[in-house]
Nucleic acid binder design. Structure first.
Lengths: 184, 184
DNA sequence: GTCTATAACTAGATAGAC
DNA sequence: GTCTATCTAGTTATAGAC
C-alpha cells in the first residue's frame, strides 16, 4: 500500500518550515531559497515535492480549511445563542490546533486569501461570523463578532500555555458576546 | 517660508496610493511599479521623492506612530480602571483616524514592524496592552486585552460607517474588559 | 521634477546529471 | 529523490537626458 502516495519526511519538513516562515515573514516575504536554506535542501527539491510555491501554501492550509468546513457545517443547523456558544467553543479549539495557519489568514497579507486552497473560505468565515453574532443582524453585534473572531486568531500564536489560553479566549469571547440579557 | 520643505502634490499622492496598496497587498507584495502605475508616474519619480521603498513606508507610518506615542504618554500616568477607560477611547479614536496604517500593522506581515519608522513601537503597544488590562498581571486579563487590541485593528478597515463603528467598537471593548465587578 | 534606459540583483521555475 | 546550472521575468535603485 501507499504506493504513489508515500509521504516522505522531506515533504513533511518542507511543510513545517514553510508554515513557520510564511507566518513570520508572510507568503510574498518568504522565498523558496529561504525555505530551502532552513530545510537544508535546494530549491529544486522543493519543486520536486510541490508543483509551485503556491502549491506549498495550498498543501499547508488544506487540513485547517477542511476542519473549518466541518465546523461550518455543524453550525449551519444551529440558531441564536446555541449557534453562538458552539461557534465560540469550536473556533477556539480550531485556532489552537492550527495556530500558524490561523495567523497566516489574519496576520498574513490578503494575497494569501486569493490562493486556490482558499476558494470558499471567505464565505465560511462569514458564516462563522454570523454564528458569533448569534444570527443577529444588529450592526453592533456583527462588529463585536468580527472583533472577537479576528482577535482570537491574532492572539493564539506565540502563547505556549494552552490550558490557560483556551479558557481565557473562551472567557473573553463569552464576556464580550454573551451579553447579560438573561434578566430581561 | 516653506522653502526646502515644500510638499508637492505628487509626493502626497504617492503616499496615499502606497498606503492603499501596502494595505491591500502587503509591503513585500507591492512593487514600485504597482505604485507608479496607480499614481500615473514612473518608478524614478517615486525614488526622487523618497530615498527608497522603505522610506515610503516610513513616511507613511510616521504620523500614526507619533500619535500613538502621544496616547502612550497620556496613559503612562494612569492606573487601573482609569488607564483602561482612557486606553479604549483613545485607541479606538486613533485606529479610526489611521485605518490603513493600523491594518498594515496587524494585517500586514511582521516585516513591516522591522522598518526604522517603527523603532520603539513594539514597547508602546505593550504599554497600551497593559492599560487595556487595567495594569493587571492576571493572564486572563492580559489575553483579553490582546484579543481586543488586535480585533479592533483588524475590524476598523473596510467599514465606512464611522459613527456606528466607533460606538460599537467601544461598546464591545468595554463589555469584554470592564467586567461587572462594580458590585463587589 | 519627471522621464527613459539600464545596472545589479533576486524571484520562481525548468533541464538534465547523478 | 536530490543536486547544479540555467532561464526568464521581476525586483530595487541609479544615471543622465530633458
Amino acid at each position: 500500500m501507499l504506493v504513489g502516495m508515500a509521504r516522505t519526511r522531506t515533504r513533511d519538513e518542507i511543510l513545517a518550515v514553510a508554515a513557520e516562515l510564511f507566518y513570520r515573514a508572510g507568503f510574498k516575504g518568504t522565498s523558496l531559497q529561504d525555505i530551502a536554506a532552513e530545510v537544508g535542501c535546494s530549491k529544486a527539491t522543493l519543486l520536486y515535492h510541490f508543483d509551485s510555491k503556491e502549491a506549498i501554501l495550498a498543501a499547508l492550509l488544506a487540513p485547517a480549511a477542511r476542519e473549518l468546513a466541518e465546523l461550518d457545517e455543524q453550525l449551519a443547523g444551529l440558531q441564536g445563542e446555541a449557534a453562538r456558544a458552539a461557534a465560540i467553543d469550536g473556533f477556539v479549539d480550531l485556532v489552537l490546533r492550527y495556530r500558524r495557519e490561523a495567523g497566516l489568514i489574519y496576520h498574513g497579507s490578503l494575497d494569501v486569501l486569493l490562493t486556490p486552497a482558499f476558494d470558499g473560505v471567505q464565505p465560511m468565515i462569514e458564516n462563522l461570523c454570523s454564528a458569533f453574532a448569534a444570527r443577529s443582524t444588529d450592526p453592533g453585534e456583527q462588529i463585536a463578532a468580527e472583533v472577537l473572531l479576528a482577535g482570537i486568531c491574532s492572539v493564539a500564536i506565540d502563547r505556549p500555555d494552552d490550558v490557560t489560553l483556551r479558557s481565557a479566549l473562551i472567557a473573553v469571547a463569552k464576556r464580550a458576546l454573551l451579553t447579560p440579557r438573561s434578566k430581561d
